[in-house]
Structure formats: C-alpha cells, structure tokens
C-alpha cells in the first residue's frame, strides 16, 4: 500500500521546469472565454453583485473595494436557530445615520444648523429623538450651543471664536449628516438568510472589526468578499484563501470546472510577497526582474528610459526576455543540460 502510494505521489509530482504558470493561465483562460456572455440576476441584497468576468477582473486586479461589498455574519449557536433572534441582530448591526432619520439644514448667515427629526423614519429605524440628541451633543465640540425645541435641534456657533467661519459650519453640518446613531458603521441592508438549518445575516459593507464586537456574532466564521479587508484584519494567509474561494465561486457559479491547483497558483502568486499584488502592470507583471520582459508587456518606453537611467542589467532570466534575444527559453527542455561523464 505504501509503495503504491509513493508511486502515485511520484506520478502526480510536477516535473522540474514544467511551465506551470502558462498552463494555469490557459486552463483558467479557456473556460473563461465561455463565461463572458451569461449574467445572472438576483433579487434582494445580492442584486447586481458582479459575477462572472467582471468579478474575476475585480479579484485579479486586487481592487481596494469590490463594487458590491458583502459581509456574511454567522451567529453564535443560541442566536442561529431562530429567525426572530437573527433578525434582531440584523437590525442591531445595520448602521443608521442621522441623515436617514432627520433633515439637516445649515444657515451660513447666522452660523447655525437645524436638525429636523422625522418621527416616522425614526420609529421605523428604532431611533428616538432622545438618542439622537445625545449623540449630536457628543459629536460636537464645546463651542456650539445646542437647543432642543420639540422635534428639532438648533445648533448655534459663536461667530467671534477663532476658526469659526462659514466653511467650518458647512463642514460640521456635513459631519452631522454622516453621524452614526446606531449599529455598525458601513453595514447596510442587513437581511437574514438561511443556510441549512442555520440563520445568518448577509449585509452590505465589510466592517469586520465592527461586526465582531456584537455579542451575538460568531467571530470565527465571519466572511466578506472584500479581500483587502480580510488581509488587513486576518493577514495574508487568510487573504490567499479568500482569493482562492472567490475565484472558485465565480467559476462554480458559471458551471465551469478548473482544477483547484491552477487557482491556488494564482492566489499564491498574488500573495507570496506578503501583500496582495494585482496581476498587471502595477502588480505582478510590473515587478518582473528583466527590463526587456517588462518593456515587452506594457509601457515600453517608460521601462527602457528608467532602466537606462539606473543602468539596469537584464540577466535574461524570464521567458519573454530569452525569446526577444533569440535564445532557448528556460522552461521544459530548455533548462535541461546534458553532460558527458566518462566512466
């Protein structure tokens, strides 16, 4: 049995100097050509989440933020079993901003800001006028005079004070509009979804740290499609796994099968340096060692001029460089040398 396994291992082992990169690129690229046309539509939060080619490009380009960031919040056991409890969590983590429940008007002549509370909206979002008032008071610097009248808050700034001018007032009013009243900053449209017999919350946004601090949330299973955020919070290894999962999800959704090892190679290539690199002129291809290789890809003249200025040397390590020069390529049979050994 062991011998058999060892033989198997040998068989599966990739030969030295096999051009794995090209094979991976072709293996992902070929089914990729069939992907472009079909796009699916969903109802609910997942609406217009890029899938297929656009999403693939997003991942590979290492975008700071996906077009539609999503966060999957899994709950601790005692909350995950009932829909009501899960819905409560969803409501608690959804961010409510002052803008959502009140109207903010600034008067640049009298240096004052008026906040008109919308009771109907407030009830819907479960925010009381009292909460709002407290938050506003906390948010403002001491120089402002705050007066509450019924459902309205009036804020007046002292003209004589240093640094107080129309620009300052406008800035303050803009800041107030974005004042977080409730929930986790950046999380919106939280919806309870069922997976198996477990309820979890799917929401827009990617504030992992904020969501984890909610007591009902299981911190070990939280997930977002924002790979950069995963890298920031959990580190590069997690990011590598996230890239792997995201690419695989895109391909699976289209019903395409690509061997996982090809995708792993892409994920590894994007993360081996310790930070996420995009595949393109600003990332992987831009950090090729050879001048000629980089010049052959994009921005030819820029690379040549810079190389000349620095007096760079091309050691002809890459494939492209050797093709340009007219030598055998250092892959496959090109790397194998024969030596004669007299007995």
């Amino acid at each position: 049995m062991l011998i058999q396994r060892d033989n198997m291992k040998k068989k599966l082992k990739i030969a030295p100097y096999e051009a794995v990169g090209v094979v991976s690129a072709q293996s992902i690229g070929e089914p990729g050509t069939q992907m472009t046309m079909r796009t699916f539509h969903y109802a609910g939060v997942a609406e217009h989440v890029p899938t297929g080619l656009p999403r693939l490009i997003e991942i590979v380009d290492a975008k700071k933020e996906p077009k539609k960031p999503l966060i999957d919040v899994y709950l601790k056991k005692e909350y995950a079993k009932s829909r009501e409890k899960a819905e409560k969590v969803a409501e608690e983590i959804s961010a409510v901003y002052l803008e959502d429940v009140a109207e903010v008007l600034d008067d640049l002549e009298s240096y004052s800001i008026e906040i008109a509370f919308d009771k109907k909206e407030g009830e819907a979002q479960k925010v009381s006028f009292k909460d709002l008032k407290e938050k506003v008071e906390k948010a403002l610097e001491k120089n402002a005079k705050i007066k509450a009248e019924g459902e309205k808050i009036k804020i007046k700034f002292d003209k004589k004070e240093k640094g107080v001018n129309a620009k300052y007032v406008r800035k303050q009013s803009q800041k107030l509009k974005q004042l977080l009243l409730k929930g986790v900053d950046g999380v919106y449209k939280a919806v309870v979804t069922k997976e198996g017999d477990e309820y979890f919350v799917r929401a827009g946004g990617y504030n992992i740290v904020g969501v984890i601090s909610h007591p009902a949330v299981d911190p070990s299973r939280i997930y977002t499609n924002n790979i950069k955020e995963i890298e920031r919070v959990f580190g590069i290894e997690a990011a590598r796994n996230a890239i792997l999962k995201e690419i695989k999800d895109v391909l699976d959704m289209q019903g395409l099968y690509v061997d996982i090892r090809h995708i792993m190679l892409v994920a590894d290539a994007m993360t081996y340096s310790g930070a996420i690199q995009s595949i393109g002129r600003h990332g992987l291809s831009g950090s090729k060692v050879g001048v000629l290789g980089r010049a052959a890809f994009e921005e030819t003249i820029k690379h040549l001029i810079n190389a000349a200025a620095k007096g760079e040397e091309d050691k002809l390590i890459g494939v492209t460089e050797n093709i340009i020069v007219g030598q055998t390529v250092p892959v496959g049979t090109g790397k194998v040398k024969l030596k004669f050994m007299p007995r």
């Binding site: 100097y17 096999e18 051009a19 090209v22 094979v23 072709q26 494939v319 093709i323 007219g326 030598q327 055998t328 390529v329 250092p330 892959v331 496959g332 049979t333 090109g334 790397k335």
Partner: peptide, 11 residues
C-alpha cells in the same frame, strides 16, 4: 509551446 516546454521548437 511554452506551456508544453518545447523550448527548442520555439527557438
């Protein structure tokens, strides 16, 4: 040809 490793053939 690169993917196949046929270096001499490319040359």
């Amino acid at each position: 040809l690169i993917g196949y490793g046929a270096s001499m053939l490319i040359k």
